[in-house]
Computed example of a mutant assay.
Amino acid sequence: MTVVMLVDSAAPISASPLEVESLAVEAEKLGYDGFGAAETRHNVFSSLALAARATSRIELKSSIAVAFARNPMTVAIDANDVQLISGGRFQLGLGSQVKPHIERRFSMPWGRPAARMEDFVGAVRAIWHAWATGERLVYRGEFYQHTLMNDFFNPGPNPHGNPPILLAAVGERMTAVAGRVADGLLVHPLTSTPYLRDKTIPGLTEARGGSLDGFTLGLSALVVLGADEESRRSADRAVRGQIAFYASTPSYRPVLEMHGWGDLADRLNTMSRRQAWDEMAAAIDDDVLDAFAVSGDAATVAARLTERFAGLIDRISFYLPYRADPAEVTALHAELRG
C-alpha cells in the first residue's frame, strides 16, 4: 500500500509522564513519524519534555494542551521549553475544552470560545515575536493583554524557531479561527468523511483565502481493530461507548445533525446526565459506528482508512479506547506505510 499520510502514534489518555516517555521511545523505534500525548490526568508539557529527552527523531505533539486552563504567557513559555529540549521537534496542539470543565474544573473564565482562542493564539505569537526580535512586547487583545517583558524573564530567540500551532476544532467558528491563525487543524475523532469533506475543509479553505498550502490536517481515527470477530468484540463495545460519550456533548451535535442523527445527540445528552454509560453505548447502532469508525483486521482497517481519508488528511493516528493487541497495531502501521 502506498503511503499517502504520515502515520503517528499516540499515548493512551491515561498514560503517566513516564509511560509517555517510554511509549515515545518505542514509537520512534517502530518508525512512526510523530507521537502525540493528551492532557487528561497529567501535564502534557511535562510528559513531552521527558519524551523529548529520550528520543532524537520523532515529532512530538500536544493533543491537546487545554488553552483556557492557562494564559498565553504560560503556554508560550512551556511550548518554547519543549521546542528547545526536543531540538525543534515539537508541535503545539491547543484546544478549548468545554464550558463545564473550564469553569468548574479549572475555575477559569469562559465565553465566546472561538473569539477567545483567536486572541489567545495572537498573544502567544506576539510573545514569541518579542523574544525572537527583542522588540517591546505590546499586545492588547479583547481577552488578553501582555505589555511587560524585561530581559530578566526573556529567554531570547529559540534557535529552532517557534513550534507550529495546531488547533482542535469541530464547529464552523473554531474551524475558521484555525484557518486564520493556526498552522494546522487537529480533527476531532468524532468526524465522518462527509463532515470533513463538506464542512471542515471548505471552512478552512475559505478562512485561508482559498488555499490550504502549508496547512496540516491531522486525525486520530477511531478504530475497531482485531485479527478476528472474537478479538474485536470488546473493541467494538469500547468504541461505541466512546462515540456515545462524544456525541452526548452539545458542541458536537452538528456532526450528527449532518447525518440526520440530531435526535440521537439529544437522547445521549439526556442519558449522560444520568451517567447511563452502558445505555448510551447500546444506542450507537451499526450505521453510526460505521460513520465514525473503521473495523477489521490490520489490512482491512488500513485499506478503509486510506479509502476514507487519503487526499483529505495529512497525518493519521489510531484512537484505541481499549487494550489493542500490540502486534495488530504494529501490523496496521506497517500496512499504512506500505
Score class of each variant (00 low, 15 high):
M1C: 09
T2P: 15
T2G: 12
M5W: 06
L6K: 14
P12V: 09
P12C: 13
V20M: 00
S22H: 08
L23G: 01
E26F: 01
G31Q: 05
D33I: 03
F35E: 06
A37I: 08
T40D: 14
R41G: 06
S47E: 08
A49H: 00
A52I: 09
A54I: 01
T55Q: 12
S56P: 06
S56Q: 11
R57L: 12
S62K: 02
V66W: 01
R70M: 01
P72A: 14
V75P: 04
A76S: 13
I77D: 02
I77S: 12
N80T: 08
N80F: 01
L84K: 03
I85D: 07
G87E: 07
G95Q: 10
P100A: 07
F106W: 10
A115Q: 12
R116M: 08
F120Y: 15
A123R: 08
V124D: 11
I127A: 05
W128Y: 08
E135L: 06
Y139P: 01
N154K: 12
G156D: 03
G161C: 04
N162S: 13
P163R: 02
P164H: 03
I165R: 04
I165C: 08
I165F: 06
A168W: 00
A169G: 12
E172H: 02
A176S: 14
V177C: 09
A182L: 02
V187I: 15
L190A: 01
S192D: 04
L196R: 04
R197V: 02
T205D: 03
A207R: 10
R208C: 13
L212H: 03
L219Q: 05
S220A: 14
V223F: 00
L225D: 09
L225C: 10
E230H: 09
S231V: 08
A238V: 07
R240I: 05
G241A: 05
G241S: 09
A244E: 04
Y246E: 04
Y246S: 01
A247T: 11
T249A: 07
R253K: 15
V255D: 08
L256Q: 06
L256P: 03
L256E: 02
M258V: 02
M258C: 05
H259F: 10
H259P: 14
D263E: 15
L264A: 12
T270D: 15
M271G: 07
M271I: 05
Q275Y: 07
Q275W: 09
A276G: 10
W277R: 13
D285G: 11
S295Q: 13
A302Q: 02
A303Y: 00
L305S: 09
L305V: 05
T306Q: 12
F309Q: 08
A310Y: 06
I313W: 03
R315H: 10
A324P: 04
E328N: 14
E328P: 09
L336R: 10
R337V: 10
G338C: 06
